[in-house]
Design a protein around this nucleic acid. Structure first.
Lengths: 303, 303
DNA sequence: CCATAGTGTTGATCAAATTGCAACACGCCG
DNA sequence: CGGCGTGTTGCAATTTGATCAACACTATGG
């Protein structure tokens, strides 16, 4: 788009920190690029980059400008999506940042459902921990984020909040698989495949385990739910996962909820950047995933 | 601003409905303007104007585009305001749409207070009834609106809501001026200067009067509070005004609250367009007027 | 029913802004 | 020092944009 070209150039230079590098990526010469930036700065009346021997870096004014540019580009994307919807076909691109817990089951399934109706909409999925998922939303890298226990941040606006119990994952022959819900202390009688410290549920577990004061027999610790799952399905080992993160088709794997006296329900939040209006495609995807989660899990809150 | 020029052209043509007219106002030739629009439309892949013998009119897609353009321009204005604030001086322009009730006392006084601290900020005041004030905000004509009993509209986001009693206006020698609060039926013993049907408080009064079922001795009806005030201060006539609309220095005019059993408190709402972020200048003005109203009147709600 | 005045559009011409190329100035590092 | 990295500038080629005049069309009034 013609009138956004300069803005995109600035955003690219801000990201790469180098005029020559951005020039190559944008398919123009460094001189044209440097002039674009100079013209923009002179129109604005303020420099927005610090020129350093190592390259370009945004100054304070530039940070404001970059936020504005990202907002402009996002809003234009939303316009395109609206126009496409007007003519009957929904097209566009949706970027969702999600906790790893949902990367296998929930997200791909929701995307598949959505794309069955609107095949012209494409998706990007960023797997990030709760902190970085929220930053991705704040930095216009992602349209929405689906995370467990997000840090409170004023710019992150929740669109849906569910309270979910934690589940113990085990093979379906496991002695504990008979009960509907189990106590955390029962789990500790068996070897544990422990989520790594970058996973949000690790902190929740940690707190509960300390409260219990019992020894934990950790046989493996991993940042990958895939690894944890494979252990839990193979041996007599127990692992953990939030309920919405449990795959619906799970082979010989079963999930049993942990009694809420041991582990209070955890917030599962779908949210966006406050004050931003989403594209039609993203907005409708949010609607779908909201109603899907809501009908499947209701509001798991009990206390 | 270079990259916004085309957008401004489109907005102007949409407003004027004529290429030649806009061309003259923008200082370019009609041919250049028609080409700008054609280029934009071809980049977008959709026409945004209907070409009629009488001129240009936005089509459905154009309406979306225009909204986007207004949002872009407003957001750029906000950026400029932020940049100015960064360098220590606050500058910018604030447009406020207000009910006529506040056009004399409250608004000019608040603007004067603000401009005493920030003389580089300029103001526009649009006097509109509650319906049109909300539309002005929705159509990006005004940054904020201060209105009585605004119609419920999803795009209008309240920032401050006060519940205000209606007051009877009379000269300070008036027989009723002795009491602190008065009953509506007492007022009807005297001639009334009645607010015109375009004023929001007319509807409130009307409902209460019908409920009372007493004859009303209307000597004059006017859409101008200035006219009503002059009658109320001159003869034994009574007029009405919401409390925050009563001028603080009022000559020989006094205001007495109507008993809330007769007339429930009215909503006084300061609001903006939902999802829009205001310029620093406008945002700080909202802060000032909010705290000023809040400290002066608290929340007048009682029931 | 034609003349008129209004609309937007188009082709050719020309000026102005943008770009590319090559050279330059500066800082860094071995 | 010499090589490599950065951003910047002068000048020429190119592209973009604006102008002017003519055109096609429609509504309106005599």
């Amino acid at each position: 788009m013609r009138h956004l070209k300069t803005l995109q150039c600035i955003a690219d230079v801000a990201a790469s920190g180098s005029i020559r590098q951005s020039a190559a990526r944008l398919g123009i010469t460094p001189s044209a690029l440097t002039r674009k930036i100079q013209d923009f700065e002179s129109e604005l009346g303020t420099p927005i980059f610090e020129r350093m021997p190592q390259g370009m870096r945004l100054n304070a004014a530039g940070e404001l400008v970059l936020r504005h540019i990202h907002a402009q580009l996002a809003d234009f994307e939303r316009l395109r999506s609206q126009l496409a919807d007007l003519s009957g076909v929904r097209r566009g691109h949706v970027t969702i940042a999600a906790s790893q817990a949902f990367a296998h089951g929930l997200i791909p399934q929701e995307i598949a459902t959505y794309r069955a109706q609107h095949p012209l909409v494409s998706f990007s999925v960023l797997v990030r921990d709760h902190i970085h998922a929220v930053s991705a939303v704040a930095g216009f890298e992602a349209d929405v984020a689906l995370v467990i226990a997000p840090p409170p941040a004023p710019e992150f606006q929740p669109l849906l909040i569910l309270h979910q119990p934690l589940c113990a994952l085990m093979s379906k022959d496991h002695p504990l698989a008979a009960a509907a819900t189990i106590r955390l202390r029962e789990c500790l009688q068996y070897p544990i495949a422990m989520p790594g410290p970058t996973l949000a549920i690790r902190h929740l577990l940690q707190a509960a385990l300390v409260r219990l004061g019992l020894p934990v027999h950790t046989v493996v610790e991993s940042d990958s739910f895939e690894v944890l799952r494979s252990y839990a399905s193979g041996e007599n080992i127990i692992s953990f996962q939030i309920r919405a993160g449990v795959p619906q088709v799970s082979g010989n794997l079963v999930a049993r909820e942990i009694d809420q006296r041991d582990l209070p329900p955890t917030q599962l939040v779908l949210g966006q950047l406050r004050g931003r209006s989403l594209s039609v495609a993203a907005s409708k995807f949010v609607d779908q995933i909201s109603s899907s989660l809501h009908s499947r899990y209701g509001d798991g809150r009990t206390g």
